[in-house]
Every structure is written in structure tokens, then in C-alpha cells.
Amino acid sequence: MAKVVAINISKEKGIPKEQIEKGTFVENFGLEGDAHAGDWHRQISLLGQESIDKIKALGMEELEAGNFAENITTEGITLYELPIGTRLKIGVTIQEVTQIGKECHQRCAIFHTVGDCVMPREGIFTRVIQGGLVLPGDTIEIIEEDR
């Protein structure tokens, strides 16, 4: 069963996000209070705990949810294999996959430490179709795949 491990937020772009107890996701905007929220295609970023664990295994055991600047840390779903257009029910929200990975213009501290970073390959982005509250432990379901 796929689930939310953590909800993460930052007031500024370009810094790791901090874990919060719950997140309010706003339709066509993103996570309330997050620097990346807005009317664009990358409102929410997601990364799997499994991806984080790959980098931890390279010697960065101290990594935790939010260190890759992801809004939602997940478990039990291979995010980067989802086709663009897939709709996910995350807690009470509905989110649509808009982008898989991203170009890394400036190598982050994680890359410089271990020689790799998974976010550019395995992180995904969504836009909020239906807003609501999301909590760690909430389930994630694929409700529609665009193939």
C-alpha cells in the first residue's frame, strides 16, 4: 500500500524543506505556505523514501524527508514510472502528474558529497486538481492513468 511518509515545506526556493504535521493543498496552487506554490505545472514535488534510501546507502545516512526539497515523501509507489497525466488520490486531494524528474542546473550539496542525486531522475511533479488536507500516513492511490 502506497502512503505519505512526510509533508515538507519551505518559505524560500533552493533550500531543504522542513517536515510539518499536516499540509493544506490548494486547488490550482499547491501547498499553502510553500515557496514553490503557484499557478504553474510544478505545484507539488514528490520523492519516494526508496529513492532517498539509495543515496543514504552511498554514505549519507543522515538524510531525511525534505532534504531533496520534496513536498511529499512517499513510500510504496514507484513515482518515476507513472505516466504524465496520471491522477493520484493523496489523502483527500487529487493531483495530476505533470513532469517526471527535472534538470539540475546547479549541483546540490548531496551530489557534491556522494556524486549522485536522485531528485532529477526519480522525483515527480504534480498540480493540485482537488485540494484538501494531507497528513503523514495518508494513502496514495492511482485513480487514473493516461497511457
Rank of each mutant, 00 (worst) to 15 (best):
E70F: 07
E62I: 12
E18I: 14
P136I: 03
A2C: 06
V114H: 05
Q130I: 09
I15K: 14
S51Q: 15
V92A: 15
E61G: 07
S10G: 04
T24Y: 12
A37I: 04
I140G: 02
G131E: 02
E75L: 08
N67A: 09
R87M: 15
G85W: 05
G132L: 06
V5T: 06
K54D: 07
G76H: 00
M60S: 07
E81F: 13
A109W: 13
E50F: 13
E61Y: 08
L58P: 07
L135P: 00
R42H: 12
H36A: 06
E32N: 04
G123M: 03
F29W: 12
N71E: 05
I100C: 03
L31D: 01
E61F: 09
K22G: 10
I55W: 02
T73G: 05
H112S: 11
L47A: 10
E64M: 15
F68I: 04
G115F: 01
P120L: 05
I94V: 15
A69P: 12
I72V: 14
T73F: 09
D116Q: 12
H36D: 02
K3E: 10
L88Y: 12
I84P: 00
E70D: 00
E145W: 09
H41Y: 14
C117Q: 15
Q43G: 00
G137V: 01
R121T: 08
I20R: 04
I124F: 08
G131D: 02
L31Q: 09
G30D: 13
F125R: 00
G101S: 03
I72Q: 04
G23L: 07
E18G: 13
L135T: 08
P120C: 05
S51L: 13
K17P: 03
A57P: 05
E96N: 05
K54A: 02
G14Q: 02
T126L: 10
E32R: 07
L135W: 11
E144A: 03
E103G: 13
E32Y: 14
T86V: 07
I140P: 01
I124Q: 07
L133D: 11
G91N: 00
W40T: 13
H112E: 14
E27T: 15
H105Y: 10
I110P: 10
V114Y: 07
E12K: 10
E61A: 07
I9E: 13
H41V: 11
I100P: 06
A69K: 11
I20Q: 09
K89M: 10
D138K: 03
S45L: 14
I7M: 00
I44T: 04
T78P: 04
G123F: 04
T74R: 06
Q49L: 12
I124S: 06
A6Y: 06
V92Q: 15
G66F: 10
A6C: 00
K3F: 10
H105D: 11
G123Y: 06
D116V: 07
G101V: 02
M1K: 03
I15H: 08
A2R: 06
S45K: 12
S10R: 02
F68R: 01
F125A: 03
R87T: 13
G59E: 03
I9S: 12
F125G: 00
E50Y: 14
I15N: 02
Q19M: 13
M1E: 09
Q49S: 12
T126C: 14
I7H: 05
Q95L: 15
H36L: 06
Q106W: 14
K13M: 01
P16R: 08
G59D: 03
I77D: 04
I90F: 01
K89L: 09
H112G: 10
